[in-house]
Protein backbone atom coordinates (compact mmCIF):
# COMPACT_ATOMS: atom_id res chain seq x y z
CA UNK A 1 0.00 0.00 0.00
CA UNK A 2 2.78 2.30 1.06
CA UNK A 3 4.85 1.61 -2.02
CA UNK A 4 1.90 2.07 -4.35
CA UNK A 5 1.31 5.45 -2.79
CA UNK A 6 4.87 6.52 -3.56
CA UNK A 7 4.63 5.17 -7.05
CA UNK A 8 1.48 7.19 -7.59
CA UNK A 9 3.23 10.30 -6.36
CA UNK A 10 6.10 9.68 -8.78
CA UNK A 11 3.72 9.19 -11.69
CA UNK A 12 1.90 12.40 -10.81
CA UNK A 13 5.22 14.20 -10.51
CA UNK A 14 6.14 12.88 -13.95
CA UNK A 15 2.90 14.10 -15.48
CA UNK A 16 3.33 17.49 -13.89
CA UNK A 17 6.88 17.80 -15.25
CA UNK A 18 5.74 16.71 -18.70
CA UNK A 19 2.65 18.85 -19.08
CA UNK A 20 2.64 21.82 -16.70
CA UNK A 21 2.78 25.04 -18.71
CA UNK A 22 6.00 26.87 -18.08
CA UNK A 23 5.22 30.53 -17.66
CA UNK A 24 8.06 32.77 -16.74
CA UNK A 25 7.71 36.40 -15.89
CA UNK A 26 6.94 38.08 -19.16
CA UNK A 27 9.87 39.86 -20.76
CA UNK A 28 9.04 42.99 -22.73
CA UNK A 29 8.97 41.99 -26.41
CA UNK A 30 11.83 43.31 -28.48
CA UNK A 31 12.60 43.65 -32.15
CA UNK A 32 15.53 41.49 -33.05
CA UNK A 33 17.41 41.25 -36.32
CA UNK A 34 19.79 38.44 -37.13
CA UNK A 35 22.03 38.44 -40.18
CA UNK A 36 22.70 34.80 -40.98
CA UNK A 37 25.30 33.71 -43.47
CA UNK A 38 24.54 30.49 -45.32
CA UNK A 39 27.18 28.37 -47.00
CA UNK A 40 27.46 24.73 -47.93
CA UNK A 41 26.50 23.27 -45.37
CA UNK A 42 26.22 25.54 -42.37
CA UNK A 43 24.65 28.70 -41.06
CA UNK A 44 26.54 31.27 -39.11
CA UNK A 45 25.44 32.07 -36.54
CA UNK A 46 23.71 28.73 -36.25
CA UNK A 47 22.16 29.20 -32.83
CA UNK A 48 19.64 31.97 -32.23
CA UNK A 49 18.01 32.91 -28.95
CA UNK A 50 14.96 35.13 -28.66
CA UNK A 51 12.30 35.75 -26.06
CA UNK A 52 8.68 34.76 -26.53
CA UNK A 53 6.75 37.59 -28.16
CA UNK A 54 9.79 39.09 -29.88
CA UNK A 55 9.43 40.39 -33.40
CA UNK A 56 12.22 38.61 -35.22
CA UNK A 57 13.80 39.46 -38.55
CA UNK A 58 16.18 36.98 -40.12
CA UNK A 59 18.28 38.29 -42.98
CA UNK A 60 19.63 35.37 -44.95
CA UNK A 61 22.83 35.96 -46.90
CA UNK A 62 23.92 33.11 -49.16
CA UNK A 63 27.63 33.09 -49.84
CA UNK A 64 28.00 30.29 -52.38
CA UNK A 65 24.83 28.80 -53.88
CA UNK A 66 21.09 29.28 -53.42
CA UNK A 67 20.09 28.35 -49.88
CA UNK A 68 16.87 28.43 -47.93
CA UNK A 69 15.88 28.60 -44.31
CA UNK A 70 12.89 26.72 -42.95
CA UNK A 71 11.93 26.86 -39.29
CA UNK A 72 10.47 23.69 -37.78
CA UNK A 73 7.31 24.28 -35.80
CA UNK A 74 6.74 27.71 -37.28
CA UNK A 75 6.51 26.23 -40.79
CA UNK A 76 7.86 29.36 -42.50
CA UNK A 77 10.73 29.71 -44.91
CA UNK A 78 12.76 31.98 -47.16
CA UNK A 79 15.14 31.45 -50.02
CA UNK A 80 18.20 33.57 -50.78
CA UNK A 81 20.42 33.76 -53.84
CA UNK A 82 23.98 34.97 -53.43
CA UNK A 83 23.88 38.74 -53.83
CA UNK A 84 20.21 38.97 -52.91
CA UNK A 85 19.67 39.08 -49.19
CA UNK A 86 16.28 37.72 -48.19
CA UNK A 87 14.41 38.67 -45.04
CA UNK A 88 12.02 36.63 -42.93
CA UNK A 89 9.82 38.38 -40.39
CA UNK A 90 7.85 36.57 -37.75
CA UNK A 91 6.54 36.78 -34.24
CA UNK A 92 8.23 34.34 -31.92
CA UNK A 93 4.93 33.26 -30.43
CA UNK A 94 5.73 29.57 -29.91
CA UNK A 95 8.13 28.89 -27.07
CA UNK A 96 10.63 26.07 -27.21
CA UNK A 97 13.62 25.03 -29.24
CA UNK A 98 13.29 24.52 -32.97
CA UNK A 99 15.65 23.37 -35.68
CA UNK A 100 15.91 25.55 -38.74
CA UNK A 101 17.16 23.93 -41.89
CA UNK A 102 17.94 24.55 -45.50
CA UNK A 103 14.94 23.84 -47.70
CA UNK A 104 16.60 24.41 -51.07
CA UNK A 105 18.71 21.45 -52.15
CA UNK A 106 22.24 22.81 -51.98
CA UNK A 107 24.49 19.78 -52.41
CA UNK A 108 25.26 16.48 -50.75
CA UNK A 109 25.01 17.42 -47.07
CA UNK A 110 21.95 19.61 -47.65
CA UNK A 111 19.64 17.49 -45.42
CA UNK A 112 21.99 18.16 -42.52
CA UNK A 113 22.38 21.91 -42.95
CA UNK A 114 20.80 22.77 -39.63
CA UNK A 115 20.64 25.55 -37.08
CA UNK A 116 18.77 26.01 -33.85
CA UNK A 117 16.29 28.67 -32.77
CA UNK A 118 15.41 28.83 -29.09
CA UNK A 119 12.38 30.89 -28.13
CA UNK A 120 12.48 31.50 -24.40
CA UNK A 121 13.83 28.32 -22.90
CA UNK A 122 14.40 24.92 -24.44
CA UNK A 123 11.47 23.59 -22.46
CA UNK A 124 11.47 20.01 -23.68
CA UNK A 125 15.09 19.67 -22.63
CA UNK A 126 14.23 20.75 -19.09
CA UNK A 127 11.11 18.62 -19.00
CA UNK A 128 12.99 15.58 -20.22
CA UNK A 129 15.78 16.11 -17.70
CA UNK A 130 13.13 16.35 -14.99
CA UNK A 131 11.52 13.16 -16.21
CA UNK A 132 14.88 11.39 -16.30
CA UNK A 133 15.54 12.37 -12.69
CA UNK A 134 12.09 11.16 -11.60
CA UNK A 135 12.69 7.95 -13.53
CA UNK A 136 16.02 7.39 -11.82
CA UNK A 137 14.51 8.07 -8.38
CA UNK A 138 11.61 5.73 -9.01
CA UNK A 139 13.98 2.98 -10.09
CA UNK A 140 15.99 3.15 -6.89
CA UNK A 141 12.71 3.24 -5.04
CA UNK A 142 11.29 0.14 -6.74
CA UNK A 143 14.56 -1.64 -6.18
CA UNK A 144 14.60 -0.95 -2.45
CA UNK A 145 10.96 -1.85 -1.83
CA UNK A 146 10.47 -4.90 -4.01
CA UNK A 147 13.67 -6.86 -4.20
CA UNK A 148 11.98 -10.15 -5.13
CA UNK A 149 10.76 -8.73 -8.42
CA UNK A 150 13.79 -9.57 -10.45
CA UNK A 151 13.65 -13.32 -10.61
CA UNK A 152 12.62 -14.00 -14.18
CA UNK A 153 14.08 -17.33 -15.23
CA UNK A 154 11.45 -17.99 -17.88
CA UNK A 155 13.75 -19.15 -20.61
CA UNK A 156 12.32 -21.82 -22.82
CA UNK A 157 14.64 -24.50 -23.96
Amino acid sequence: MHSRFFLLILIIAGLVVAFVPLSFRPIAPQERTFRIGARQFAYSPSELKVNPGDKVTIQLVSTDVVHGLYIDGYDISIEADPGQTAALNFFADKPGSFRFRCNVTCGAMHPFMIGKLTVGSNQWLYRSIGLSIIAAISLFFIRSTRPSDRQLPITIY
Binding site: V61, S62, T63, D64, D81, P82, G83, Q84, T85
Partner: peptide
Protein backbone atom coordinates in the same frame (compact mmCIF):
# COMPACT_ATOMS: atom_id res chain seq x y z
CA UNK B 1 21.94 44.23 -61.09
CA UNK B 2 20.53 42.17 -58.19
CA UNK B 3 20.48 39.00 -60.25
CA UNK B 4 23.77 39.30 -62.05
CA UNK B 5 26.07 41.81 -60.40
CA UNK B 6 25.33 42.08 -56.67
CA UNK B 7 27.01 38.80 -55.73
CA UNK B 8 30.40 40.42 -56.45
CA UNK B 9 29.76 44.18 -56.59
CA UNK B 10 27.57 44.15 -53.49
CA UNK B 11 23.91 44.81 -53.01
CA UNK B 12 24.72 48.50 -52.36
CA UNK B 13 27.27 48.75 -55.14
CA UNK B 14 30.26 49.04 -52.83
CA UNK B 15 32.23 46.21 -54.40
CA UNK B 16 31.75 44.13 -51.28
CA UNK B 17 29.54 41.32 -52.53
CA UNK B 18 29.61 37.86 -50.99
CA UNK B 19 32.20 36.69 -53.52
Amino acid sequence: YAQNCAACHGENGAGDGVF
